[in-house]
Design a binder for these strands. Structure first.
Lengths: 345, 345
DNA sequence: GGAGCTATTGTATACGTAAACACCAGAACC
DNA sequence: GGTTCTGGTGTTTACGTATACAATAGCTCC
């Protein structure tokens, strides 16, 4: 039934024997070394195909402590932003016969630590960490093993650890200017989980964007969310409970904006005629809700590439302070933003 | 700076030497063998912690051809259903220090083949395949290597390959009965990509549910989608272009329902007063749209567990025809379904 | 008290690879 | 024609683990 009936050992030596060459030559062919004569290489490749030989990378991992695998630690696979990033990372890696090892933290530190351990066990060649709050203490074990790390939005580099950050400032600025042109003057903001560094950064970006647009910041128009739908929903309800309201709401990410939209629907407030809403991330589903979300689209492919570039640089000269990259989002205007309503302004 | 300054070799032998035992004992402790005296085990564990020793699974993979890694092949990480399943699979695996290796096919056969190869390279202990169309030819290489496979919704088992299917029949039936009780008699259906086996299965389930509910099937009320938002949107528009319309639409999955909702919004048709919509899958975002989607929630945790159970069984006795499991969804009624409108019925 | 048993520990080994190094034939050069 | 170089290939080796097997001490049982 099965072509290989009696589980013959399959390794480079058996291939070499069949091809009449040495195992080193087989290895060279497989790794695309240019030192092999073309005819020899072709012949070896033919034998490999004939035998359906599949090399065993764990031997390499064992001997040379490199796995051709990169780790990705994300907080939450339920937020489509992360699987979409994973997809882009996978695409970039698979091209070079590399793999990605995903671990989720569920926003819990215990799970972050367990994820870090998983990365060490599997001897990954580098790690991309998107976990919200990354304290140096948590990633220390990785650094000790001299494995390159890239964090996202930590905006801090240390020896062995680079960072790729999303330029919230420019994104927020584009969104704020867009709203200003539509006549909005009273802008609100629904942030991330209170106390998190990333939430702080994004709120600051909002404040700064207001400043640059010559609009005033009103602390009463700001509420914390939790990066998820229910957080955006609750925050929006809190904002709607007040007598004076903003005419437009910016949010920390698309899911939060979804929550805000849901709360507005529940309150019978029309979007965008009575309230404009802007998201951030540009997840694929952002144009599946009604009204379609105006949002700042983060270029995931570019981000994935920069992460890998950063890891590459770190591998070249570990020990030195890691590289800092930044990616810029693009405001995509859709149905959730519109001219400010006459009635209130 | 780094605790381990001059990269001492770290392996079970060095641990054993420090602990005054043999490497076999260290191995036994790490693998939780009960054959070790408790005091010895405790002592070894202390030394392991002291040395921050991390075992190297690639040695095991190399020697025993088992990687403690399971593969997951999905068509599309942009559909939240798949990352949500991945999350559940990961949770179930990580408990036992096992990993999951994800590969996406993007609905393309070339990518399925490349994914299969990746699984073989990494010597996975089993594979869960959710790719829509799985022809035996594509997975043959895995079968030849005697690696257990579970497919999803293939509803076919062969030696070495089991299947876990979602019981569309019961889910559709619950949805149809729900709509019937609301007074609907004219039910439409937006299916998956035309020609795919899974699409066929789901359409049949719909037809059968109609039959059992004593409702008539109207082929004009059926359109194909593509499992994505745009497909649902286009299909809904096609249905709305007709003079006589159904009063309720069932869909092949939640994304398709999202698309249908979007088309309905665009046509100014109110949901659920003028048209009811039912999804399938129960992705987390199904209650983030407006109106919140009535949908059949698939129990992902149970599904993940059954997949692993099936793989386990296959490992025990490969060669025999694989096990067939089934999971049942639960209808969750939300805002997208309501009583049929008087005007049309 | 010896045979048999159990609990606990130790010894030795093979898995497949990439790279360091060795080797050789032929070309190039004076 | 000897020397040097280079393109192409072969030989050898170590990586860290789980397990089969061996070994020992202490115990039970008649």
């Amino acid at each position: 039934m099965s072509p290989r009936s009696a589980a013959q050992p399959q390794n480079m030596r058996t291939v070499a024997r069949r091809a009449g060459v040495s195992s080193a030559t087989v290895s060279r062919v497989i790794n695309g070394s240019s030192a092999v004569k073309k005819e020899t290489a072709d012949h070896v490749r033919r034998v490999i195909a004939e035998m359906k030989f599949i090399p065993n990378p764990s031997a390499t991992t064992l001997k040379y402590n490199r796995s051709n695998t990169y780790g990705l630690i994300v907080p939450d696979l339920n937020n489509p932003f992360f699987p979409e990033f994973l997809l882009n990372l996978e695409e970039a890696l698979v091209k070079n016969d590399q793999e990605v090892l995903v671990a989720t933290t569920q926003w819990r530190e215990a799970q972050l630590n367990s994820s870090v351990r998983r990365m060490l066990l599997r001897r990954v060649d580098g790690v991309v960490i998107m976990a919200s709050e990354v304290e140096t203490r948590s990633i220390e074990p990785i650094l000790e093993h001299r494995i390159p790390i890239v964090t996202i939005d930590r905006r801090k580099a240390e020896p062995g650890c680079g960072d790729v950050c999303i330029d919230f400032e420019s994104g927020m600025q584009a969104a704020v200017l867009h709203l200003k042109h539509l006549g909005h003057r009273r802008l609100g903001f629904i942030g991330g989980t209170d106390g998190l560094r990333t939430s702080q950064i994004r709120l600051r970006a909002f404040q700064r964007a207001l400043q640059e647009a010559d609009l005033s910041f009103n602390e009463q128009f700001v509420r914390a969310g939790n990066y998820r739908v229910d957080g955006g929903d609750a925050a929006m309800r809190a904002l709607l409970g007040r007598a004076d309201r903003p005419t437009a709401i910016l949010t920390v990410n698309d899911l939060t904006a979804f929550g805000a939209l849901r709360a507005l629907h529940a309150y019978g407030i029309e979007v965008p005629t009575q309230m404009s809403v802007v998201g951030f991330d540009g997840i694929q589903l952002s144009d599946a809700v009604h009204p379609a979300l105006t949002t700042v689209v983060v270029p995931l492919k570019e981000m994935a590439k920069k992460c890998l570039d950063a890891l590459e640089k770190l591998k070249k000269n570990t020990g030195r302070r890691g590289p800092l990259f930044s990616v810029e989002g693009t405001l995509v205007v859709r149905g959730s933003t519109g001219p400010v309503s006459r009635s209130r302004s």
